[in-house]
Write a protein that binds this DNA or RNA. Structure first.
Lengths: 126, 126, 126, 126
DNA sequence: GTGGTCTAGACCACT
DNA sequence: GTGGTCTAGACCACC
Protein backbone atom coordinates (compact mmCIF):
# COMPACT_ATOMS: atom_id res chain seq x y z
CA UNK A 1 0.00 0.00 0.00
CA UNK A 2 1.34 3.37 -1.05
CA UNK A 3 1.02 6.36 1.20
CA UNK A 4 1.88 9.89 0.18
CA UNK A 5 1.70 12.91 2.42
CA UNK A 6 1.68 16.59 1.61
CA UNK A 7 4.15 17.93 4.13
CA UNK A 8 3.12 21.51 3.46
CA UNK A 9 -0.61 20.97 3.07
CA UNK A 10 -3.22 22.39 5.40
CA UNK A 11 -4.44 19.00 6.62
CA UNK A 12 -2.44 17.74 9.62
CA UNK A 13 -0.11 14.89 8.83
CA UNK A 14 -1.69 12.55 11.33
CA UNK A 15 -5.06 13.16 9.71
CA UNK A 16 -3.82 12.64 6.17
CA UNK A 17 -2.26 9.40 7.32
CA UNK A 18 -5.45 8.36 9.09
CA UNK A 19 -7.51 9.07 5.96
CA UNK A 20 -5.26 7.08 3.70
CA UNK A 21 -5.32 4.10 6.00
CA UNK A 22 -9.12 4.24 6.19
CA UNK A 23 -9.29 4.31 2.39
CA UNK A 24 -6.80 1.46 2.32
CA UNK A 25 -9.10 -0.62 4.51
CA UNK A 26 -12.14 0.17 2.41
CA UNK A 27 -10.48 -0.59 -0.91
CA UNK A 28 -8.83 -3.79 0.23
CA UNK A 29 -5.26 -2.53 0.32
CA UNK A 30 -5.42 -3.50 3.97
CA UNK A 31 -7.37 -6.63 4.78
CA UNK A 32 -9.10 -7.24 8.12
CA UNK A 33 -6.61 -8.72 10.59
CA UNK A 34 -3.72 -7.54 8.45
CA UNK A 35 -0.77 -6.27 10.42
CA UNK A 36 0.14 -2.62 10.07
CA UNK A 37 3.76 -1.44 10.02
CA UNK A 38 5.24 -0.64 13.40
CA UNK A 39 5.10 2.96 14.53
CA UNK A 40 8.83 3.33 14.10
CA UNK A 41 8.92 1.68 10.72
CA UNK A 42 6.14 3.75 9.25
CA UNK A 43 7.56 6.93 10.67
CA UNK A 44 10.90 6.19 9.09
CA UNK A 45 9.40 5.24 5.73
CA UNK A 46 7.40 8.45 5.59
CA UNK A 47 10.15 10.60 7.00
CA UNK A 48 8.03 11.86 9.87
CA UNK A 49 8.14 11.66 13.65
CA UNK A 50 7.09 8.56 15.58
CA UNK A 51 4.74 10.68 17.71
CA UNK A 52 2.79 11.64 14.62
CA UNK A 53 2.30 8.03 13.59
CA UNK A 54 1.51 7.22 17.19
CA UNK A 55 -1.25 9.79 17.21
CA UNK A 56 -2.65 8.37 13.99
CA UNK A 57 -2.75 4.87 15.42
CA UNK A 58 -4.39 6.07 18.62
CA UNK A 59 -7.04 7.84 16.60
CA UNK A 60 -7.71 4.85 14.38
CA UNK A 61 -7.93 2.64 17.45
CA UNK A 62 -10.33 5.00 19.16
CA UNK A 63 -12.52 5.08 16.05
CA UNK A 64 -12.53 1.31 15.87
CA UNK A 65 -10.63 0.84 12.61
CA UNK A 66 -7.70 -0.96 14.14
CA UNK A 67 -6.91 -2.86 17.29
CA UNK A 68 -3.63 -2.81 19.10
CA UNK A 69 -2.45 -6.14 20.41
CA UNK A 70 0.25 -5.75 23.01
CA UNK A 71 2.01 -8.78 21.68
CA UNK A 72 2.12 -8.14 17.96
CA UNK A 73 1.47 -4.46 17.39
CA UNK A 74 -1.37 -2.92 15.40
CA UNK A 75 -3.69 -4.67 12.97
CA UNK A 76 -6.90 -3.92 11.12
CA UNK A 77 -9.97 -4.69 13.20
CA UNK A 78 -11.51 -8.06 12.37
CA UNK A 79 -14.94 -6.39 12.36
CA UNK A 80 -15.82 -2.74 12.47
CA UNK A 81 -18.89 -1.48 14.28
CA UNK A 82 -21.68 -0.05 12.18
CA UNK A 83 -21.65 3.23 14.08
CA UNK A 84 -25.31 4.34 14.24
CA UNK A 85 -24.96 8.11 14.35
CA UNK A 86 -22.53 8.00 11.49
CA UNK A 87 -25.45 8.60 9.18
CA UNK A 88 -26.18 12.13 10.37
CA UNK A 89 -22.56 13.13 10.11
CA UNK A 90 -22.43 11.70 6.62
CA UNK A 91 -25.42 13.73 5.48
CA UNK A 92 -23.86 16.91 6.74
CA UNK A 93 -20.68 16.29 4.81
CA UNK A 94 -22.55 15.29 1.69
CA UNK A 95 -24.76 18.33 1.80
CA UNK A 96 -21.78 20.64 1.57
CA UNK A 97 -20.09 18.66 -1.15
CA UNK A 98 -23.24 18.45 -3.23
CA UNK A 99 -23.98 22.14 -2.73
CA UNK A 100 -20.56 23.00 -4.13
CA UNK A 101 -20.97 20.55 -6.97
CA UNK A 102 -24.37 21.99 -7.89
CA UNK A 103 -23.05 25.52 -7.91
CA UNK A 104 -20.10 24.49 -10.03
CA UNK A 105 -22.49 23.17 -12.62
CA UNK A 106 -22.38 19.45 -12.06
CA UNK A 107 -25.69 17.70 -12.61
CA UNK A 108 -26.98 14.82 -10.58
CA UNK A 109 -26.40 12.08 -13.10
CA UNK A 110 -22.75 13.04 -13.50
CA UNK A 111 -22.40 13.07 -9.73
CA UNK A 112 -23.97 9.67 -9.36
CA UNK A 113 -21.64 8.28 -12.01
CA UNK A 114 -18.63 9.47 -10.07
CA UNK A 115 -20.00 7.94 -6.89
CA UNK A 116 -20.55 4.65 -8.67
CA UNK A 117 -17.01 4.57 -9.93
CA UNK A 118 -15.67 5.18 -6.47
CA UNK A 119 -18.02 2.67 -4.89
CA UNK A 120 -16.95 0.00 -7.33
CA UNK A 121 -13.46 0.14 -5.86
CA UNK A 122 -14.64 -0.47 -2.34
CA UNK A 123 -14.15 -4.12 -1.52
CA UNK A 124 -14.65 -4.11 2.23
CA UNK A 125 -17.08 -6.83 3.30
CA UNK A 126 -18.94 -7.13 6.55
CA UNK B 1 -31.59 32.52 6.20
CA UNK B 2 -30.67 30.97 9.52
CA UNK B 3 -27.07 30.45 10.49
CA UNK B 4 -25.98 28.49 13.51
CA UNK B 5 -22.42 28.02 14.65
CA UNK B 6 -20.93 25.50 17.00
CA UNK B 7 -18.56 27.52 19.12
CA UNK B 8 -17.03 24.40 20.57
CA UNK B 9 -16.80 22.38 17.38
CA UNK B 10 -13.67 21.35 15.56
CA UNK B 11 -14.34 23.34 12.42
CA UNK B 12 -13.07 26.94 12.50
CA UNK B 13 -15.83 29.51 12.79
CA UNK B 14 -14.96 31.24 9.55
CA UNK B 15 -15.18 27.93 7.76
CA UNK B 16 -18.51 26.96 9.30
CA UNK B 17 -19.85 30.32 8.25
CA UNK B 18 -18.45 29.96 4.74
CA UNK B 19 -19.99 26.51 4.41
CA UNK B 20 -23.43 27.63 5.50
CA UNK B 21 -23.40 30.52 3.06
CA UNK B 22 -22.38 28.21 0.23
CA UNK B 23 -25.22 25.86 1.11
CA UNK B 24 -27.53 28.87 1.28
CA UNK B 25 -26.59 29.82 -2.26
CA UNK B 26 -27.06 26.31 -3.55
CA UNK B 27 -30.45 25.79 -1.91
CA UNK B 28 -31.87 29.18 -2.81
CA UNK B 29 -31.76 30.76 0.59
CA UNK B 30 -29.50 33.32 -1.05
CA UNK B 31 -30.35 34.27 -4.63
CA UNK B 32 -27.77 35.46 -7.17
CA UNK B 33 -27.23 39.19 -6.79
CA UNK B 34 -28.78 39.12 -3.33
CA UNK B 35 -27.13 41.42 -0.87
CA UNK B 36 -25.40 39.91 2.16
CA UNK B 37 -25.43 41.54 5.58
CA UNK B 38 -22.58 43.86 6.35
CA UNK B 39 -19.60 42.36 8.12
CA UNK B 40 -20.46 44.35 11.18
CA UNK B 41 -24.10 43.36 11.21
CA UNK B 42 -23.46 39.66 10.73
CA UNK B 43 -20.76 39.61 13.36
CA UNK B 44 -23.09 41.19 15.85
CA UNK B 45 -25.98 38.87 15.02
CA UNK B 46 -23.79 35.81 15.49
CA UNK B 47 -21.93 37.14 18.49
CA UNK B 48 -18.52 36.67 16.95
CA UNK B 49 -15.62 38.87 16.01
CA UNK B 50 -15.82 41.05 12.88
CA UNK B 51 -12.42 39.74 11.82
CA UNK B 52 -13.92 36.28 11.57
CA UNK B 53 -16.73 37.40 9.30
CA UNK B 54 -14.26 39.42 7.31
CA UNK B 55 -12.16 36.35 6.73
CA UNK B 56 -15.22 34.42 5.59
CA UNK B 57 -16.19 37.08 3.06
CA UNK B 58 -12.64 37.28 1.71
CA UNK B 59 -12.60 33.54 1.28
CA UNK B 60 -15.98 33.45 -0.47
CA UNK B 61 -14.88 36.26 -2.77
CA UNK B 62 -11.65 34.52 -3.60
CA UNK B 63 -13.55 31.34 -4.40
CA UNK B 64 -15.94 33.26 -6.65
CA UNK B 65 -19.13 32.80 -4.63
CA UNK B 66 -19.63 36.48 -3.85
CA UNK B 67 -18.49 39.84 -5.16
CA UNK B 68 -17.59 42.75 -2.97
CA UNK B 69 -18.44 46.27 -4.04
CA UNK B 70 -16.93 48.95 -1.92
CA UNK B 71 -20.07 51.05 -2.23
CA UNK B 72 -22.82 48.50 -1.85
CA UNK B 73 -21.19 45.83 0.26
CA UNK B 74 -21.16 42.11 -0.54
CA UNK B 75 -23.60 40.25 -2.75
CA UNK B 76 -23.90 36.80 -4.25
CA UNK B 77 -22.11 36.53 -7.60
CA UNK B 78 -24.47 36.86 -10.58
CA UNK B 79 -22.77 33.86 -12.17
CA UNK B 80 -20.31 31.41 -10.70
CA UNK B 81 -17.50 29.82 -12.71
CA UNK B 82 -17.81 26.13 -13.49
CA UNK B 83 -14.34 25.66 -12.07
CA UNK B 84 -12.86 22.71 -14.02
CA UNK B 85 -10.32 21.50 -11.51
CA UNK B 86 -13.07 21.32 -8.94
CA UNK B 87 -13.76 17.84 -10.18
CA UNK B 88 -10.52 16.35 -8.92
CA UNK B 89 -10.93 17.89 -5.51
CA UNK B 90 -14.49 16.59 -5.35
CA UNK B 91 -13.40 13.05 -6.11
CA UNK B 92 -10.83 13.15 -3.33
CA UNK B 93 -13.40 14.24 -0.78
CA UNK B 94 -15.95 11.73 -2.01
CA UNK B 95 -13.48 8.90 -1.89
CA UNK B 96 -12.90 9.39 1.81
CA UNK B 97 -16.57 9.82 2.62
CA UNK B 98 -17.57 6.76 0.63
CA UNK B 99 -14.76 4.70 2.13
CA UNK B 100 -16.03 5.47 5.60
CA UNK B 101 -19.62 4.81 4.60
CA UNK B 102 -18.70 1.46 3.08
CA UNK B 103 -16.79 0.38 6.16
CA UNK B 104 -19.66 1.43 8.38
CA UNK B 105 -21.91 -0.89 6.44
CA UNK B 106 -23.81 1.42 4.10
CA UNK B 107 -24.57 -0.03 0.70
CA UNK B 108 -24.51 1.89 -2.54
CA UNK B 109 -28.25 2.10 -3.11
CA UNK B 110 -28.81 3.61 0.33
CA UNK B 111 -26.03 6.08 -0.36
CA UNK B 112 -27.50 7.07 -3.72
CA UNK B 113 -30.88 7.61 -2.10
CA UNK B 114 -29.39 10.02 0.39
CA UNK B 115 -27.61 11.88 -2.40
CA UNK B 116 -30.84 12.17 -4.34
CA UNK B 117 -32.66 13.62 -1.38
CA UNK B 118 -29.98 16.23 -0.89
CA UNK B 119 -29.79 17.01 -4.60
CA UNK B 120 -33.52 17.60 -4.76
CA UNK B 121 -33.09 20.54 -2.41
CA UNK B 122 -30.52 22.24 -4.62
CA UNK B 123 -32.20 24.95 -6.66
CA UNK B 124 -29.23 26.84 -8.03
CA UNK B 125 -29.52 27.41 -11.80
CA UNK B 126 -26.79 28.36 -14.22
CA UNK C 1 -8.54 23.73 43.24
CA UNK C 2 -5.39 21.95 44.29
CA UNK C 3 -3.74 19.43 42.05
CA UNK C 4 -0.86 17.23 43.07
CA UNK C 5 0.93 14.77 40.84
CA UNK C 6 3.20 11.89 41.64
CA UNK C 7 6.00 12.40 39.16
CA UNK C 8 7.44 8.97 39.80
CA UNK C 9 4.21 7.05 40.18
CA UNK C 10 3.05 4.30 37.86
CA UNK C 11 -0.01 6.18 36.61
CA UNK C 12 0.78 8.41 33.62
CA UNK C 13 0.80 12.11 34.43
CA UNK C 14 -1.90 12.94 31.91
CA UNK C 15 -4.14 10.34 33.53
CA UNK C 16 -3.52 11.51 37.08
CA UNK C 17 -4.35 15.00 35.92
CA UNK C 18 -7.45 13.81 34.13
CA UNK C 19 -8.63 11.97 37.23
CA UNK C 20 -8.16 14.92 39.53
CA UNK C 21 -10.07 17.20 37.20
CA UNK C 22 -12.92 14.70 37.00
CA UNK C 23 -13.04 14.52 40.78
CA UNK C 24 -12.92 18.32 40.87
CA UNK C 25 -15.98 18.49 38.66
CA UNK C 26 -17.86 15.95 40.75
CA UNK C 27 -17.08 17.59 44.07
CA UNK C 28 -17.78 21.12 42.95
CA UNK C 29 -14.22 22.38 42.89
CA UNK C 30 -14.92 23.04 39.24
CA UNK C 31 -18.41 24.25 38.40
CA UNK C 32 -20.10 23.63 35.05
CA UNK C 33 -19.10 26.36 32.59
CA UNK C 34 -16.13 27.26 34.74
CA UNK C 35 -13.03 28.13 32.79
CA UNK C 36 -10.01 25.87 33.14
CA UNK C 37 -6.46 27.23 33.22
CA UNK C 38 -4.78 27.52 29.85
CA UNK C 39 -2.63 24.65 28.73
CA UNK C 40 0.52 26.72 29.17
CA UNK C 41 -0.48 28.06 32.55
CA UNK C 42 -1.37 24.70 34.02
CA UNK C 43 1.76 23.11 32.59
CA UNK C 44 3.87 25.78 34.19
CA UNK C 45 2.09 25.59 37.54
CA UNK C 46 2.55 21.83 37.68
CA UNK C 47 6.05 21.88 36.30
CA UNK C 48 5.22 19.57 33.42
CA UNK C 49 5.20 19.82 29.66
CA UNK C 50 2.45 21.54 27.71
CA UNK C 51 1.98 18.44 25.58
CA UNK C 52 1.05 16.46 28.65
CA UNK C 53 -1.61 18.95 29.67
CA UNK C 54 -2.72 19.11 26.06
CA UNK C 55 -3.25 15.36 26.04
CA UNK C 56 -5.26 15.58 29.24
CA UNK C 57 -7.53 18.24 27.81
CA UNK C 58 -8.03 16.28 24.60
CA UNK C 59 -8.98 13.25 26.61
CA UNK C 60 -11.41 15.14 28.82
CA UNK C 61 -12.94 16.72 25.75
CA UNK C 62 -13.31 13.40 24.03
CA UNK C 63 -14.98 11.93 27.12
CA UNK C 64 -17.38 14.85 27.30
CA UNK C 65 -16.20 16.39 30.56
CA UNK C 66 -15.04 19.66 29.06
CA UNK C 67 -15.62 21.66 25.89
CA UNK C 68 -13.01 23.68 24.10
CA UNK C 69 -14.18 27.01 22.81
CA UNK C 70 -11.82 28.40 20.22
CA UNK C 71 -12.36 31.86 21.57
CA UNK C 72 -11.86 31.43 25.27
CA UNK C 73 -10.09 28.15 25.85
CA UNK C 74 -11.36 25.16 27.81
CA UNK C 75 -14.27 25.06 30.22
CA UNK C 76 -16.29 22.44 32.06
CA UNK C 77 -19.17 21.12 29.97
CA UNK C 78 -22.49 22.77 30.80
CA UNK C 79 -24.10 19.34 30.79
CA UNK C 80 -22.48 15.93 30.68
CA UNK C 81 -24.07 13.02 28.85
CA UNK C 82 -25.34 10.15 30.92
CA UNK C 83 -23.26 7.62 29.04
CA UNK C 84 -25.41 4.47 28.88
CA UNK C 85 -22.79 1.74 28.77
CA UNK C 86 -20.98 3.34 31.65
CA UNK C 87 -22.89 1.07 33.95
CA UNK C 88 -21.25 -2.13 32.77
CA UNK C 89 -17.80 -0.63 33.04
CA UNK C 90 -18.61 0.54 36.53
CA UNK C 91 -19.66 -2.91 37.66
CA UNK C 92 -16.44 -4.41 36.42
CA UNK C 93 -14.36 -1.92 38.35
CA UNK C 94 -16.47 -2.33 41.47
CA UNK C 95 -16.27 -6.08 41.35
CA UNK C 96 -12.51 -6.00 41.59
CA UNK C 97 -12.46 -3.40 44.33
CA UNK C 98 -15.03 -5.21 46.40
CA UNK C 99 -13.28 -8.54 45.90
CA UNK C 100 -10.10 -7.07 47.30
CA UNK C 101 -11.97 -5.42 50.15
CA UNK C 102 -13.70 -8.67 51.06
CA UNK C 103 -10.46 -10.60 51.09
CA UNK C 104 -8.82 -7.93 53.21
CA UNK C 105 -11.52 -8.43 55.80
CA UNK C 106 -13.76 -5.47 55.22
CA UNK C 107 -17.44 -6.21 55.74
CA UNK C 108 -20.24 -4.78 53.71
CA UNK C 109 -21.53 -2.27 56.24
CA UNK C 110 -18.11 -0.72 56.65
CA UNK C 111 -17.79 -0.52 52.89
CA UNK C 112 -21.15 1.15 52.51
CA UNK C 113 -20.22 3.67 55.16
CA UNK C 114 -17.13 4.65 53.23
CA UNK C 115 -19.14 4.98 50.04
CA UNK C 116 -21.64 7.20 51.81
CA UNK C 117 -18.93 9.48 53.08
CA UNK C 118 -17.49 9.86 49.62
CA UNK C 119 -20.89 10.32 48.04
CA UNK C 120 -21.75 13.08 50.47
CA UNK C 121 -18.93 15.16 49.01
CA UNK C 122 -20.24 14.89 45.47
CA UNK C 123 -22.15 18.03 44.65
CA UNK C 124 -22.53 17.71 40.91
CA UNK C 125 -26.12 18.31 39.83
CA UNK C 126 -27.73 17.36 36.53
CA UNK D 1 -12.61 -21.41 36.91
CA UNK D 2 -12.85 -19.60 33.62
CA UNK D 3 -10.37 -16.94 32.66
CA UNK D 4 -10.75 -14.73 29.63
CA UNK D 5 -8.25 -12.13 28.52
CA UNK D 6 -8.68 -9.22 26.17
CA UNK D 7 -5.55 -9.31 24.07
CA UNK D 8 -6.32 -5.91 22.62
CA UNK D 9 -7.43 -4.21 25.81
CA UNK D 10 -5.67 -1.42 27.66
CA UNK D 11 -4.97 -3.41 30.78
CA UNK D 12 -1.72 -5.41 30.72
CA UNK D 13 -2.25 -9.12 30.42
CA UNK D 14 -0.48 -9.94 33.67
CA UNK D 15 -2.76 -7.50 35.45
CA UNK D 16 -5.95 -8.85 33.89
CA UNK D 17 -4.86 -12.30 34.94
CA UNK D 18 -4.03 -11.14 38.45
CA UNK D 19 -7.42 -9.45 38.77
CA UNK D 20 -9.35 -12.48 37.68
CA UNK D 21 -7.53 -14.70 40.11
CA UNK D 22 -8.22 -12.27 42.95
CA UNK D 23 -11.89 -12.23 42.04
CA UNK D 24 -11.79 -16.01 41.86
CA UNK D 25 -10.47 -16.17 45.41
CA UNK D 26 -13.08 -13.75 46.71
CA UNK D 27 -16.01 -15.47 45.06
CA UNK D 28 -14.98 -18.98 45.96
CA UNK D 29 -13.88 -20.15 42.54
CA UNK D 30 -10.52 -20.70 44.20
CA UNK D 31 -10.59 -21.98 47.78
CA UNK D 32 -7.85 -21.27 50.33
CA UNK D 33 -5.08 -23.85 49.96
CA UNK D 34 -6.31 -24.75 46.50
CA UNK D 35 -3.56 -25.48 44.04
CA UNK D 36 -3.14 -23.23 41.04
CA UNK D 37 -2.13 -24.53 37.60
CA UNK D 38 1.56 -24.49 36.85
CA UNK D 39 2.93 -21.45 35.09
CA UNK D 40 3.54 -23.53 32.04
CA UNK D 41 0.11 -25.07 31.98
CA UNK D 42 -1.76 -21.82 32.46
CA UNK D 43 0.32 -20.04 29.83
CA UNK D 44 -0.46 -22.74 27.34
CA UNK D 45 -4.17 -22.78 28.16
CA UNK D 46 -4.41 -19.03 27.70
CA UNK D 47 -2.12 -18.88 24.70
CA UNK D 48 0.22 -16.38 26.28
CA UNK D 49 3.86 -16.23 27.23
CA UNK D 50 5.06 -18.07 30.33
CA UNK D 51 6.85 -14.91 31.42
CA UNK D 52 3.50 -13.18 31.67
CA UNK D 53 2.02 -15.83 33.93
CA UNK D 54 5.21 -15.83 35.93
CA UNK D 55 4.89 -12.12 36.52
CA UNK D 56 1.30 -12.55 37.64
CA UNK D 57 2.22 -15.23 40.15
CA UNK D 58 5.08 -13.15 41.52
CA UNK D 59 2.75 -10.23 41.95
CA UNK D 60 0.07 -12.31 43.68
CA UNK D 61 2.68 -13.78 45.99
CA UNK D 62 4.08 -10.37 46.84
CA UNK D 63 0.59 -9.11 47.63
CA UNK D 64 -0.07 -12.11 49.85
CA UNK D 65 -2.81 -13.78 47.82
CA UNK D 66 -0.86 -16.93 47.06
CA UNK D 67 2.12 -18.81 48.38
CA UNK D 68 4.66 -20.52 46.20
CA UNK D 69 6.23 -23.77 47.29
CA UNK D 70 9.11 -24.91 45.15
CA UNK D 71 7.99 -28.51 45.47
CA UNK D 72 4.26 -28.26 45.12
CA UNK D 73 3.84 -25.15 43.00
CA UNK D 74 1.51 -22.28 43.76
CA UNK D 75 -1.55 -22.36 45.93
CA UNK D 76 -3.98 -19.89 47.43
CA UNK D 77 -2.79 -18.55 50.79
CA UNK D 78 -4.42 -20.29 53.77
CA UNK D 79 -5.00 -16.89 55.35
CA UNK D 80 -4.61 -13.44 53.90
CA UNK D 81 -3.45 -10.43 55.89
CA UNK D 82 -5.99 -7.77 56.68
CA UNK D 83 -3.59 -5.22 55.27
CA UNK D 84 -4.30 -2.03 57.21
CA UNK D 85 -3.08 0.53 54.69
CA UNK D 86 -5.32 -1.07 52.15
CA UNK D 87 -8.05 1.20 53.36
CA UNK D 88 -6.48 4.42 52.10
CA UNK D 89 -5.83 2.97 48.69
CA UNK D 90 -9.39 1.73 48.55
CA UNK D 91 -10.78 5.16 49.29
CA UNK D 92 -8.73 6.71 46.52
CA UNK D 93 -10.02 4.24 43.97
CA UNK D 94 -13.58 4.58 45.18
CA UNK D 95 -13.45 8.34 45.06
CA UNK D 96 -12.67 8.33 41.36
CA UNK D 97 -15.25 5.69 40.54
CA UNK D 98 -17.95 7.43 42.52
CA UNK D 99 -17.06 10.81 41.02
CA UNK D 100 -17.54 9.41 37.55
CA UNK D 101 -20.74 7.67 38.54
CA UNK D 102 -22.15 10.86 40.06
CA UNK D 103 -21.32 12.89 36.98
CA UNK D 104 -22.88 10.28 34.77
CA UNK D 105 -26.11 10.66 36.68
CA UNK D 106 -26.15 7.67 39.00
CA UNK D 107 -27.66 8.32 42.40
CA UNK D 108 -26.43 6.86 45.64
CA UNK D 109 -29.21 4.34 46.20
CA UNK D 110 -28.69 2.83 42.77
CA UNK D 111 -24.97 2.65 43.49
CA UNK D 112 -25.51 0.96 46.84
CA UNK D 113 -27.79 -1.59 45.22
CA UNK D 114 -25.11 -2.53 42.74
CA UNK D 115 -22.57 -2.86 45.53
CA UNK D 116 -24.91 -5.11 47.47
CA UNK D 117 -25.40 -7.38 44.50
CA UNK D 118 -21.67 -7.72 44.04
CA UNK D 119 -21.06 -8.22 47.74
CA UNK D 120 -23.58 -11.02 47.89
CA UNK D 121 -21.38 -13.06 45.56
CA UNK D 122 -18.34 -12.76 47.77
CA UNK D 123 -17.92 -15.92 49.80
CA UNK D 124 -14.43 -15.52 51.17
CA UNK D 125 -14.30 -16.14 54.94
CA UNK D 126 -11.60 -15.17 57.36
C1' DG E 1 11.07 -5.25 19.66
C1' DT E 2 6.40 -3.32 20.49
C1' DG E 3 3.53 0.74 21.72
C1' DG E 4 3.10 4.36 25.50
C1' DT E 5 4.74 8.38 27.80
C1' DC E 6 7.28 12.54 28.50
C1' DT E 7 10.29 16.56 27.55
C1' DA E 8 11.89 20.96 25.44
C1' DG E 9 11.25 23.89 22.14
C1' DA E 10 9.13 25.48 17.93
C1' DC E 11 5.66 27.08 14.57
C1' DC E 12 0.92 27.68 13.04
C1' DA E 13 -4.23 28.54 12.84
C1' DC E 14 -7.78 30.81 14.93
C1' DT E 15 -10.08 34.65 17.25
C1' DG F 1 -3.00 34.79 23.58
C1' DT F 2 -5.52 30.40 22.76
C1' DG F 3 -5.18 25.41 21.55
C1' DG F 4 -3.24 22.33 17.77
C1' DT F 5 0.58 20.27 15.47
C1' DC F 6 5.18 18.62 14.78
C1' DT F 7 10.05 17.41 15.76
C1' DA F 8 14.05 14.96 17.86
C1' DG F 9 15.37 12.29 21.17
C1' DA F 10 14.70 9.68 25.37
C1' DC F 11 13.01 6.25 28.73
C1' DC F 12 9.68 2.82 30.26
C1' DA F 13 6.20 -1.09 30.45
C1' DC F 14 4.91 -5.07 28.29
C1' DC F 15 5.58 -9.49 26.09
Amino acid sequence: MIISLELDGETPLYEQLRNQIVIGIATGGLAPQEKLPTVRQLAEDLGINTMTVNKTYSLLKQQGYIVIDRRHGAKVSPTIDESPNHSAELEGQLQLIIAQAAIRGMDQSRFQTICSQIFSKMTYQH
